[in-house]
């Protein structure tokens, strides 16, 4: 295995969700008794059928929702300021250029464009969009828009990046490419990622931990560890190991579906 990586057990905790419950409109239980620990450097996928509360969990972590009961504890000095989010849609401001879109998190913290310009250009080249800083979103393809969205999430160097099915709306080829690039970026930057997806293959390829969830009520039914070393751009996606992980995760997902039915 990769030697310079802290093994999963030794990573220090970033945040802990304890007995989280979220009820909408008084009777719709979106999440029931969710317990999850996220450690620094993790790539955790939340995998499950629609209605299993995976997006709700993400929004709880982001502070966009507050839990009905239970608590989310951030460890030592970490806080909401340290996170960014990537949605399923690129969620760009159509009236602003690529660079101005990436500037947004800084702008909202009162930092001038000039002061952070080099960081913006830097992150744009990191996601493969050098020379596109003056383009408007409408001039870009779906994959490129998603890259801008990722650049915006990365530019502040957050400790935690939340991704809500970010590549679900893209075509398969673009999606594979972005999956690969995402792993590379994560290695380079060393951030923590919580990734919501409904694709078994994507979750196995990307994650070191997969949290399988079931619906009605939304809850965690299994946590699986994917021990394959990073980087995984080489032969991982065609290996026997990958196929076996896929089967294990698929089985777990089937169990989740059976529970909901």
């Amino acid at each position: 295995m990769c030697s310079d990586r802290t093994s999963i057990e030794n990573r220090s905790s970033l945040l802990t969700m304890e007995h989280i419950e979220k009820v909408f409109n008084g009777d719709v239980v979106a999440l029931k008794d969710m317990n999850l620990q996220i450690n620094l450097g993790d790539f955790v996928s939340l995998l499950g059928p629609s209605g299993c509360g995976k997006s709700t969990a993400l929004r709880l972590i982001a502070g966009l929702l507050s839990p009905t009961s239970g608590s989310i504890q951030w460890s030592g000095g970490q806080s909401l300021d340290d996170l960014s989010i990537v949605f399923q849609e690129p969620t760009l401001m159509p009236w602003a250029t690529v660079a101005k879109n990436v500037w947004l998190p800084f702008r909202l913290r009162g930092q001038s464009y000039k002061a952070v310009k080099s960081r913006i250009l830097n992150v744009l080249s990191l996601v493969g969009l050098e020379n596109f800083e003056d383009a408007y979103p409408r001039e870009l393809s779906g994959g490129m828009k998603m890259r801008v969205s990722i650049a915006r999430a990365l530019v502040t160097n957050p400790r935690l990046i939340l991704m809500d099915e970010p590549f679900a709306a893209l075509d398969e080829i673009t999606r594979l490419k972005l999956d690969n690039d995402l792993l590379e970026l994560k290695e380079k930057i060393g951030c923590t990622v919580v990734f919501v997806t409904h694709s078994v293959f994507e979750s196995v390829f990307l994650s070191d931990r997969i949290v399988v969830m079931a619906a009605r009520p939304g809850r965690v039914i299994r946590e699986l560890q994917i021990d394959a070393p990073y980087p995984r751009s080489g032969g991982f996606s065609t290996s026997v190991e990958y196929a076996e992980y896929n089967r294990t995760v698929s089985d777990a997902l089937k169990d989740a579906m059976a529970l909901a039915a």
Binding site: R59, D81, F87, L108
Partner: peptide, 10 residues
């Protein structure tokens, strides 16, 4: 989603 983004960035 942009509104949520603005919330996240305070």
């Amino acid at each position: 989603n942009l509104q949520d983004l603005f919330s996240i960035y305070g």
